[in-house]
């Protein structure tokens, strides 16, 4: 009896590893995988975001002449959806996720696009500039995590910088030349998603099983929800944040 049990464990492990290998080799939505979709909403009216005075750098203020820039701590859609929330699976033990697209952190019109860039540990991303003014990228990780801080300029026309982070952490990133420029590198383990303008998100490539989905927002905090993902189906998780 006991031996059989062990055998079952070993077999299922083999199957799981096989599946994982299959997923890795086949990419998106391999057979048997599920996903988690949902919406993140903001409870109540969106907090007023201050305008940004970019007069320090004429290039920046010119870029925003017709469309004044605002801080992006809370970006809420018309229907109350909250953008820039990072959703990931807490305590993920599976294999690393294959990168299916090149992650780009762009400096455009003296703002970071996207404001929050989610990524897997070890996943490489590119920091690039589309501006005709110099920026510096200065992420400030906690020294205890093992992520090494860096600080590098990108004058106009510089080639992109390719980097990755070792440990999971939400790392604030700033441009010291344009102090209003701030963003986040959300380094998580396993599959992840970032909510869009309307608060919608989809975490792809989640094998069937029970998970705790975590939603993280830079100012509103974190929330978790338990979901069960079935093979080939979409589980749903909806979050509602209160502005702090």
């Amino acid at each position: 009896m006991r031996n059989r049990h062990n055998l079952a464990v070993v077999l299922s492990a083999v199957v799981l590893v096989g599946c994982a290998a299959l997923i890795l080799s086949q990419g998106v939505n391999a057979a048997g995988e599920g996903k988690i979709t949902g919406t993140v909403k903001l409870d109540g009216p969106a907090p007023h975001m201050k305008g940004i005075d970019m007069s320090k750098d004429p290039y920046c203020s010119k870029a925003h002449a017709s469309d004044p820039a605002h801080y992006e701590t809370y970006v809420a859609g018309a229907n109350g959806g909250l953008a820039n929330v990072v959703l990931y699976i807490d305590g993920w033990t599976g294999a690393a996720q294959a990168s299916n697209a090149v992650l780009v952190f762009d400096q455009r019109n003296c703002m970071y696009t996207p404001h929050v860039l989610a990524m897997d540990t070890g996943e490489s991303f590119k920091v690039q500039t589309s501006d005709q003014t110099a920026h510096n990228i200065h992420p400030n990780p906690n020294p205890m995590t093992g992520n090494i801080p860096w600080n590098q300029s990108q004058p106009p026309g510089s080639p992109p910088v390719e980097k990755s982070w070792k440990a999971t952490e939400f790392i604030p990133v700033k441009c010291n030349i344009h102090p209003w420029m701030n963003g986040w590198f959300a380094v998580v383990k396993g599959p992840y998603a970032t909510s869009d303008e309307n608060g919608n998100f989809t975490i792809n490539n989640v094998p069937p099983g029970n998970y705790t989905v975590t939603a993280w927002h830079e100012a509103a905090g974190t929330q978790t929800q338990k979901v069960t993902v079935a093979a080939g189906a979409a589980a749903s998780a909806n979050f509602t944040f209160k502005a702090k």
């Binding site: 110099a134 510096n136 600080n151 590098q152 300029s153 990108q154 004058p155 026309g157 510089s158 080639p159 910088v161």
Partner: peptide, 12 residues
């Protein structure tokens, strides 16, 4: 490598 990506000098 960091100081002069693409052979163009950075401010630092």
């Amino acid at each position: 490598k960091n100081g002069a990506p693409g052979d163009v000098m950075t401010p630092e």
